[in-house]
Nucleic acid binder design. Structure first.
Length: 571
RNA sequence: CGGGGUGUGGCGCAGUUGGUUAGCGCGCAGCGUUUGGGACGCUGAAGUCGGAGGUUCGAGUCCUCUCACCCCGACCA
């Protein structure tokens, strides 16, 4: 490809509204342009990289017997009503009517059409297991897109769906997908960590996320240095330690004027925060008030709480709502409450003589004991893991880090097959629901993460495997015919083996060309100039290397090969 | 949805207490000189000042409404 003909221009200045490194570089290098918030046009160089990423993923999916399909972007709402998500998913699902007044949706994911296909095509256990996948556009009307390609509303995803006779077969197959994902990310030049995750709106029994560690990430990971346990903070487990013991004492009301925080309260009464019970309130999708009770030194994990309640929506309650329910904010008590759903964190089981609210402004109870003094609709783990907490696996200390979620794999189970009637006949002639898994990777986000992970102050440093082109030939002094000829023949000969971008622009200075080359960040730069020819050939430089070498033209190919092979990142 | 911010040629920005014909750098076009780290000269094209309404003799500038985008939060496979 000739640089003079390349569609897309490099920007000399940083765009004013790009904060993330990857966003800045994607714009400056002329790779993408925004057309609306979270909606991007992908220019030739970006699309080349995305196709390379897709090809790597395609190979890994095919290697585990995946079959590529293409499912529609517009679905009839009926399918989403059948699965229930028409009702459970919020405004991020774009709904519209076609001209006939029929409800339609823009695909934000493809479980529904896949399950519909499965119920039509699969009738026998003999057809299972199977894996289908696609590269297709999704649209999610996120309330807030940000960070360039890291979080967008419209994006291309590789999504895959497996179908099995039973959970055992899904369990058997799942690790192959995980391995395929690890292979794919590594081949794309990325270091990822695999973490336990929350299945969220997808439902299902287990899921794992593939994360690139980055301060630009929106997810918090919790991981243990000791044993390698790693999880999204939304799902992370930890050891809460033994409860404060002792013989239960009689309940006793004490005046605690002005004590608004747990810390103040604990100091005032001379007890550790872990001997208090903290009350936190939420409102669910039906307007019902949820009363979450947790040990005073811990915080509520809203995701865990929502999952435990099977709530589709959960938000903190307002003071007005609490008042209307007869709850004294700041002094709320699980003791004697009525008409609310009480969820107790398991940290309170066996804890003796806690300080809890008295549901009267300015008063608390001492010596509250569960379940002696208050009931619970649900007792479970609803605690948020934090840096410094104790690993539940090995007892080590947990640390937190930020990450960008590139892939997510789920054991869906029968959520969709059951809801939509996707069944098969087993060898005994029994009708059974298909057991499903689903597996996603964001293509554009992967590309952005690669840039986020591989760059310097001059520009992008593409991992060779996903670079738009591997070689950037820079021609200088091209007004001299013999040099132009040499550069042209280098372009042609290297082009037989690699994708080559040839900077043959005549009106640009050497400085502009070198700076553009660094900005675009193709892995190997080959400079053909009066100086290089005089020195005996062409100058070869890897983008990540400080040094360059002049190589005789007849040995260029092996030099480029060696430079590509010197890539220091994963491959 | 809450908080904050920004909208002026393609990009980055300036524009005073309201006052002629709205500027600067980069980029772009033409001509010439240039080519190893963002060259130089000359000439030139390109702007409904985000939009609507209002105040005023006069609005890029003041007022009202509105739209878009960015950042923080809420939210989120």
């Amino acid at each position: 490809m000739r640089m003079s003909r390349l569609f897309g221009t490099t920007l000399r200045h940083d765009p004013a509204d790009a904060e993330l490194v990857s966003h800045r570089l994607l714009l400056r290098a002329g790779l993408v342009r925004a057309i609306a918030a979270g909606i991007y046009c992908y220019l030739p160089l970006a699309y080349r990289s995305m196709r390379r990423i897709e090809e790597i993923i395609r190979q890994e999916m095919n290697a585990i017997d995946g079959q590529e399909v293409l499912l529609p972007v517009v679905h009839p709402a009926e399918l989403w009503k059948e699965s229930g998500r028409w009702f459970s998913v919020g405004p991020e699902l774009v709904r519209f009517e076609d001209r006939g007044g029929r409800d339609m949706v823009l695909a934000m994911t493809h479980e529904e059409p896949v399950t519909d296909l499965l119920r039509r095509e699969v009738s026998s256990y003999r057809q299972l297991p199977l894996l289908v996948y696609q590269f297709q556009v999704k649209f999610r009307d996120e309330p807030r897109s940000r960070g360039g390609l890291v979080r967008v509303r419209e994006f291309t995803m590789k999504d895959g769906y497996s179908a099995h006779t039973d959970f055992e077969d899904l369990d058997r197959f799942y690790p192959y997908v995980r391995q395929a994902y690890e292979n794919a990310f590594r081949r794309c030049g990325l270091d990822v960590v695999v973490v336990d995750a929350d299945p969220g709106m997808m439902g299902g029994t287990a899921s794992h996320e593939f994360m690139v560690l980055s301060e630009a990430g929106e997810d918090t990971l919790i991981h243990c240095q000791g044993c390698g346990y790693a999880a999204n903070a939304e799902a992370a487990r930890f050891a809460k330690g033994d409860p404060v013991g002792g013989d239960p004492l009689p309940l006793e009301e004490v005046a605690t004027p002005g004590m608004k925080t747990i810390q103040q309260l604990a100091d005032f009464l001379g007890v550790p925060t872990r001997q208090t019970a903290k009350a936190v309130f939420y409102v669910d999708q039906d307007g019902g008030i949820i009363f979450a009770v947790i040990r005073g030194d811990l915080d509520v994990n809203e995701v865990k709480l929502g999952n435990a309640l099977r709530a589709t929506e959960l938000r903190p309650a307002t003071d007005a709502e609490l008042e209307a329910a007869g709850i004294a904010a700041g002094y709320a008590s699980p003791i004697g409450v009525k008409g609310v759903k009480v969820v107790v964190d398991d940290s309170l089981v066996g804890a003796a003589n806690l300080v809890a609210g008295a549901n009267r402004a300015g008063f608390h109870y001492r010596n509250a004991n569960f379940p002696r003094d208050f009931r619970a609709d649900l007792v479970t783990d609803i605690a948020l893991a934090r840096q410094g907490d104790t690993c539940s696996v090995c007892g080590g200390e947990l640390a937190d880090q930020r990450g960008i979620e590139l892939g997510h794999i789920f054991k869906l189970g029968t959520k969709y097959s059951q809801a939509m009637g996707a069944t098969y006949l087993d060898p005994d002639g029994q009708e059974k629901p298909i057991v499903m898994g689903c597996y996603g990777i964001g293509i554009g986000r992967l590309m952005a993460a690669a840039i986020e992970q591989h760059n310097d102050d001059k520009g992008i440093i593409w991992p060779p495997a996903i670079a738009p082109c591997q070689v950037h030939v820079v021609g200088l002094n091209l007004d001299r015919a013999e040099i132009a000829e040499a550069a042209e023949s280098v372009y042609e000969s290297l082009g037989k083996r690699w994708e080559v971008l040839y900077d043959e622009r005549s009106e640009q200075s050497a400085g502009v060309k070198f700076n553009d080359a660094d900005l675009l960040g193709l892995p190997v730069r080959v400079t053909v100039s009066a100086r290089s020819l005089k020195a005996g050939g062409a100058e070869v430089k890897a983008r990540w290397a400080a040094a360059s070498e002049v190589v005789p033209l007849e040995r260029l190919e092996e030099a480029v090969e060696a430079a590509l092979a010197s890539w220091p990142g994963p491959q």
